[in-house]
Amino acid sequence: MKLKRNVAVSENGFLFNPETGDSFIVNPIAKEILNYLKEGYDIEKINQLILDRYEVDLVTLEKNMEDFLKMLQHNELLDR
């Protein structure tokens, strides 16, 4: 699961999908995850990185990550 290569996230959290012309706003933690995805990290690794940095339990994080990835998928932002 990887972010499409030409998808760019700006410093202030604006995301533009040049293939579809859609724009999005992401919150800071989402931006962080998108950058990890771009680096090609797998989900487990990303979860671990987030767990290390943020006050959150694994169950909540996994639920939220799944939802977030679903949204990325829904908006055609991921390479399959």
Partner: peptide
């Protein structure tokens, strides 16, 4: 430009 649009959308 998308950058203008982006800045308006975010801020």
């Amino acid at each position: 430009d998308i950058a203008q649009f982006g800045s308006l959308s975010v801020t």
